[in-house]
Deep mutational scan, measured.
Amino acid sequence: MQRVNMIMAESPGLITICLLGYLLSAECTVFLDHENANKILNRPKRYNSGKLEEFVQGNLERECMEEKCSFEEAREVFENTERTTEFWKQYVDGDQCESNPCLNGGSCKDDINSYECWCPFGFEGKNCELDVTCNIKNGRCEQFCKNSADNKVVCSCTEGYRLAENQKSCEPAVPFPCGRVSVSQTSKLTRAETVFPDVDYVNSTEAETILDNITQSTQSFNDFTRVVGGEDAKPGQFPWQVVLNGKVDAFCGGSIVNEKWIVTAAHCVETGVKITVVAGEHNIEETEHTEQKRNVIRIIPHHNYNAAINKYNHDIALLELDEPLVLNSYVTPICIADKEYTNIFLKFGSGYVSGWGRVFHKGRSALVLQYLRVPLVDRATCLRSTKFTIYNNMFCAGFHEGGRDSCQGDSGGPHVTEVEGTSFLTGIISWGEECAMKGKYGIYTKVSRYVNWIKEKTKLT
């Protein structure tokens, strides 16, 4: 034993070699072989497995989906700052455009905790909710729209109204504003409101030439003092309507412009014939205590009207009353817009006519005020429907199939267009061939041609 100890002390290297040989010859039971080890760690190889990531292109799944990435790591994937920024906006807080917040056709661009709407022409605001041009839906104005110097929408209202708090709607500024039905039992019968379409306001006024200088022999019209197929109006439903009495009662109609003036057809009036105007009328054979009678003290036909040349060209006249009318729910003026808007309103496509005229061709006159909704007829169809001249200051309205029309005794009465609950004068009943005849239409004086003249002559002093 002493000898062994001496050998170990003198030859430590020998001992180490012996131990190493023993270990190498022993069977290893701690580690699995290569094949079995792979069965336990069965993990798919990654895209760049075996390579240094710093030297390969980034992978979106590896960089940002398996674990949260930084902007720089995302930049490695896209290799483009702009594309990385677009991805980053949604990656950080989701897609803010998912709810489609942009209105009126706006395009949404996502941002971090926010979004941006790219608005089409005519709109602005956070969600493109603000109209900035009158060309689109009248700028959301209830009545009139004008573009300011910086191309912003400025709404306005006709006389007797003021802008509401929203700067879009119009509200009454006087007790009985024009064009409004205020009798409670008839307010439910107000005709369907007309909503502004998209309009090209630059070209809204037709490029028409008034044929002022045409000389033409007097034409022989049949029954051209021209509501057939209409309905009984309720008291106060058309408070701007008046009836004219002269040699015979209810020979023509008219509309209240203001307390002192009536507008009617020029062919209705004769110099030297006494005319009485009755406002607030409903049943011409009954006294309903809503009527107001006034005498006409002055007749002003349009300066281009000449019955000797043509009885229905420039067929418009103004009547001055001896005493002002007292405005109330049964006696209310009709609204008159400017030339541009009167023309736009007419193009809405349908209007209402009213009167006490004959209820059928050569038949009896109506006792109760009649009204009828009539569609506008395109000019080409209008011209083809008659052998008589249709001037540019006239328009056609009615039904091709016949059966409904204005008729004798309705002449001078109103053709009105309702705009968001307020009625505007767009025409004056003038003439036609018979009444409600198939293929024939009622012919009306186009008020847009005469609004400046009306307003100039009827100013209240």
Rank of each mutant, 00 (worst) to 15 (best):
L383S: 15
V447N: 00
D405M: 11
T16F: 12
V153Q: 04
Q167S: 11
D150R: 09
N151R: 10
G427M: 01
E10P: 15
R449D: 10
P177W: 01
L52W: 06
S411P: 11
A307M: 11
T209L: 13
W240G: 01
K459Y: 09
E165M: 11
G442K: 07
N138I: 03
K293Q: 09
G280S: 02
Y352N: 06
R180S: 04
E10S: 14
C141D: 00
S354Y: 08
N138C: 02
E340W: 08
G349H: 08
G122I: 01
T389C: 05
E54V: 06
P172L: 04
R294V: 02
F123W: 09
L60D: 07
G280E: 01
L103C: 03
Q408L: 14
Y352I: 14
A164N: 08
C108Q: 00
N310P: 03
Q241S: 06
H361M: 14
A250E: 07
L319K: 00
L319D: 01
E79V: 14
W118K: 15
H289Y: 06
Y115Q: 02
D232Y: 12
P301T: 10
I256G: 00
D223V: 08
K339A: 14
E320W: 01
R449T: 12
W261V: 02
E79W: 10
C134E: 02
G105A: 04
N304C: 06
V326M: 14
E54Q: 11
Q185L: 10
D150H: 09
Y441R: 03
A308H: 09
L327W: 14
G21C: 07
S220H: 07
D95M: 04
K146R: 12
N343H: 07
E27T: 09
L189G: 09
P12G: 12
E323V: 14
E66D: 06
A279N: 01
G403W: 14
N135L: 07
L325M: 04
Y312H: 10
E142V: 06
V183M: 10
Q216M: 10
N48G: 06
V278N: 04
D378K: 14
E54T: 12
W118G: 05
R373Y: 07
L383A: 15
T81S: 09
R226V: 08
H361A: 06
S184C: 05
F348C: 06
Y115H: 03
I454S: 00
Y161S: 00
D95R: 08
Y450R: 02
A164H: 11
N313R: 13
V154K: 10
V353C: 03
V227Q: 07
L103F: 06
W431N: 13
T209E: 12
A436P: 08
T381A: 12
R191I: 11
R226I: 10
V199D: 12
S329R: 12
T264W: 01
G125S: 02
S204K: 13
L211E: 06
R62T: 04
C170P: 02
N166W: 02
K39Q: 10
E73W: 04
C134G: 02
L318A: 03
L14K: 03
G413P: 00
V174C: 04
Q2E: 09
V278W: 05
G355N: 09
V183K: 09
G21F: 14
N38Q: 15
N138W: 04
L14Y: 06
C28S: 13
S411C: 06
I334Q: 01
Q370I: 03
K51Y: 07
D110W: 05
L383I: 09
M437W: 13
C268F: 02
T81H: 12
Q370E: 04
S25K: 06
N80E: 09
T133G: 07
E165R: 10
S255E: 02
V374N: 02
Q237L: 09
A250F: 08
N166M: 02
A149R: 09
N313G: 06
E434K: 14
N328Y: 00
S11I: 14
W240D: 00
V419L: 06
N258C: 01
K260A: 03
W356M: 09
D150F: 07
L369H: 14
W453T: 01
P44G: 11
N304V: 03
T417M: 04
G355Y: 15
D212G: 13
T85C: 04
I344N: 08
F224H: 10
H267N: 04
I7S: 07
C435I: 03
G357F: 10
C141R: 00
Q219E: 09
F251M: 07
G106R: 01
I299L: 05
L372C: 13
E171S: 07
L319F: 04
H267P: 00
V416K: 01
I334G: 01
N151S: 08
Y47Q: 14
R46P: 15
I443F: 06
T186M: 12
S184L: 13
V77T: 15
F224E: 06
I15P: 04
S156F: 13
H415T: 00
L19P: 03
S406E: 15
T81I: 07
T194M: 13
E171T: 08
A233C: 04
E10L: 13
R358L: 07
E72I: 15
A173W: 06
V263H: 00
S204G: 12
G402C: 07
L346Y: 05
C407L: 08
Q90E: 07
V202L: 12
C157T: 00
N166Y: 02
C119L: 00
L60S: 15
N127V: 05
G402H: 06
P301W: 08
L24S: 04
L211D: 11
L14I: 12
L346G: 02
Q219D: 08
R358E: 11
F71I: 15
A366I: 09
G351F: 00
